[in-house]
């Protein structure tokens, strides 16, 4: 999918219309290991790019998930609260965290595309 963008903090964002779906990358879920808990924001909350959007925890680590772009939270993936393992099973799909109503589409331009992100991750190992 060409419309997907990544941050150097391993969040991804996919845009459909003016709604951005946000999650963590496959690389990130592998680094974390089994996800045991996900804390999601309340819908209606407004986030600026770089704000803490969610928290994801494994047994021995906790990481903040930052909003890659600004916008208002319109939906959260409540299924993760009961089955946090969904992040491991399908990080790039059903394991999404929040949907934001975009306030500034130009912010997307600052993020990496899939090829650039892959190169970025290769550089980390």
């Amino acid at each position: 999918m060409s419309d997907i963008r990544f941050t150097d903090q391993h969040e991804w964002v996919r845009v459909e219309g003016d709604v951005a779906t946000i999650g963590i990358s496959n690389y990130a879920q592998e680094q974390l290991g089994d996800v045991v808990f996900v804390e999601l924001p309340e819908t209606g909350k407004t986030l600026a790019a770089g704000d803490e959007a969610a928290v994801v925890e494994s047994v021995k680590a906790a990481s903040e998930v930052y909003a890659p772009v600004s916008g208002e939270v319109v939906e959260v993936n409540g299924a993760l609260e009961d089955e946090p393992g969904g992040v491991n099973e399908d990080a790039m799909g059903n394991g999404w965290f929040v949907k934001l109503k975009l306030s500034d589409t130009s912010e997307l331009d600052k993020l990496m595309d899939e090829a650039a992100y892959k190169e970025f991750c290769d550089g980390l190992d």
């Binding site: 047994v59 021995k60 906790a62």
Partner: peptide
């Protein structure tokens, strides 16, 4: 639930 604790969460 150690992620609540200082040895993992540090200042949080």
């Amino acid at each position: 639930l150690s992620t609540r604790e200082q040895h993992i969460r540090r200042e949080k």
